[in-house]
Amino acid sequence: MRNRIREQRIQRELSQADLAEGLAVSRQTVISLESGRYLPSLPLAFKIARFFDMTVDKMFDPEEEEAGA
C-alpha cells in the first residue's frame, strides 16, 4: 500500500522527528510508515490523515501498489 506521508511531510518542510512528535510515535515508526514497511492501525491512519488535513483514502492508496506490482 502506497502512502503520501513522505511527500506531505517534505511539502510542509517537517523533519521525521517533527512528524513523530506530532503523531506521538517514534522516529523509527515514521521511517517504517514512509517506506511502507509498516501499515498503521486505523486510529493512527486517521491521526496521520488529520495531521496533514487530508482524508484517509487520499493519504493511503491500496490501488497504487496493485497497479505498480
Binding site: 506521538a24 510515535v25 517514534s26 515508526t29
Partner: peptide, 17 residues
C-alpha cells in the same frame, strides 16, 4: 536510546514497537 529496543525497554513503545 532512540531505538525500538530502547523504547521497549523504556516502556514508551508506540503501536509498531
Amino acid at each position: 536510546e532512540d531505538t525500538d529496543e530502547g523504547a521497549l525497554l523504556g516502556s514508551r513503545a508506540d503501536e509498531r514497537q
